[in-house]
Design a protein around this nucleic acid. Structure first.
Length: 411
RNA sequence: GCGGGCGUAGCUCAAUCGGUAGAGCGCCAGGUUGUGGUCUUGGAUGUAGUGGGUUCGAAACCCAUCGCUCGCCCCA
């Protein structure tokens, strides 16, 4: 490969791509702020243990998907594969476990070493929120409502459905897990090869197998509800009641699972059918066990994360940048006067550009091409008279405006 | 990590059976050196992803490699 290319799974965000990206992040930031979330900016790389600790031993495979390397001092660091672990680490290292609740919003790049697919990259970007402290089911519903509002504001809510499930508390979860293993073990002969290995290392994952044959077996598998303790069942019912109270439509999906131990109770995903196999657009749940694994006191928390690229692909179009005003001097003498006009426009908050080169016709063409809404044409006669020709490129009308009034005229 | 499809101009894409590469758009310049959009005339651009092989001859066939894409695995 002689020509330089972006590294595999990375991409440049330019033009429309950048605008979509920015619009997703800004919209999320604004709406999260209205819910009382403050933005945290945590490091893009962390001590590898920040992630390995939370991922536990399920994950000799998972470790292979992280960007982990030794720095020059011999310490193992990892480019963050997700946002929650870093936020929990920051909560602990900043002593904020004494100041709960903390309502955190974040946005930024994440890194996973995997095979790129539609909406799935090695460097990608996520937005997310974490509501740390409350153990009440109202917090779960509020986090979800915030996510729903963001999807609505982005115009993607119509193509998206919220699916919720409960993972129960420890007791419920253990009982359900045993029941599932017993069920699938009884159907071992009909399970796919992949699911047989799942049965060994991560039986819950059989529930979202994509294999045709597995699906019919999964269809008959037990759901968690009969195994819920009374407390867990009540919690789940309350989450649903609050969601209804917030006006968030949802569908129960007993097949939603989470791989790691620190998850419990609520698990949810916003799903679209418009992105092929990568249909989950926002996912989250309650993780009361994570802060403790980070070395802090046991602290309840709930949150979600969403891929900016995926949301950007679902959006109709990003709002276009404001149309500029172009200042067009005719001749060298006029250029000096044009600089003053240009800066006056900018000072008034108007997006203004200078037409650098070519004859008048060329400069007008240029202005038109970049989508200018108006041009301010400055000739020697005009300058002598203290005016400029302000031409509206949409209507084609043009008239002389005194220097001092140009900015107000174009505001 | 595994499997399918694809890779030709800045972009979107053509080219019969293997005979030495084209269109549209865009770009640049002129028609019009004080007025854009429409019109019109002309112009530039390709290491055919890369490397190897078969052949008198390869964009086309074969192998490898890189990248993109769709799916699987995984999904914190």
């Amino acid at each position: 490969m002689t020509e330089l290319q972006p590294a595999r799974g990375t991409h440049d965000l330019i033009g429309e791509d950048q605008r979509r990206h920015h619009h997703v992040a800004e919209t999320a930031r604004r709406i999260a702020a209205s819910y009382g979330f403050d933005e945290w900016i945590t490091p893009i790389f962390e001590d590898t243990r920040v992630f390995s600790r939370t991922l536990g031993e399920t994950s000799d495979v998972v470790m292979k998907e992280m960007y982990t390397f030794e720095d020059r001092g011999g310490d193992s660091v990892t480019l963050r594969p997700e946002g929650t672990a870093g936020v929990c680490r920051a909560l602990v290292t900043n002593g904020l476990t004494q100041s709960l609740p903390q309502k955190v919003f974040y946005a930024g790049p994440m890194f996973r070493y995997e095979r790129p697919q539609k909406g799935r990259y090695r460097q990608f970007h996520q937005i997310g929120i974490e509501l740390i402290g409350p153990s009440e089911p109202l917090a779960d519903a509020e986090a979800i409502a915030c996510g729903w509002d963001i999807l609505k504001a982005l115009g993607v809510a119509d193509d998206t459905v919220l699916e919720i499930n409960t993972l129960g508390d420890k007791e419920s979860h253990a009982a359900y897990r045993d029941a599932l293993i017993a069920y699938f073990a009884a159907h071992q002969d009909k399970l796919s090869k992949d699911s047989l290995t799942r049965l060994e290392r991560n039986p819950m994952r059989i529930l979202d197998s994509k294999d045709e044959g597995d699906r019919s077996i999964v269809a008959g598998a037990p759901t968690i509800e009969p195994y819920l303790t009374e407390a867990a069942a009540t919690f789940y019912a309350q989450v649903q009641a609050y969601l209804t109270g917030f006006g968030v439509p949802f569908r129960k999906n007993p097949r939603i699972v989470r791989g790691l131990d620190y998850y419990g109770h609520t698990a949810f995903e916003f799903v679209t059918s418009k992105l092929g196999a990568q249909g989950t657009v926002m996912a989250g749940g309650r993780y009361d066990g994570l802060v403790a694994e980070m070395g802090g006191p046991r602290t309840p928390a709930v949150g979600w994360a969403a891929g900016i690229e995926r949301l950007g692909m679902l959006m109709d179009a990003a709002p276009p940048p404001p149309a500029p005003v172009v200042v067009v001097p005719i001749g060298e003498a006029a250029e000096a006067a044009a600089l003053g006009v240009l800066q006056a426009l900018r000072a008034a908050g108007i997006r203004a550009e200078m037409a650098y080169r070519g004859n008048l016709r060329r400069r007008m063409e240029r202005a038109n091409k970049i989508g200018a809404r108006a041009t301010v044409i400055l000739g020697d006669d005009d300058i002598a008279a203290g005016v400029a020709q302000v031409k509206d490129l949409r209507t084609g009308t043009q008239d002389a405006v005194a220097f001092a009034e140009i900015a107000a005229r174009l505001a």
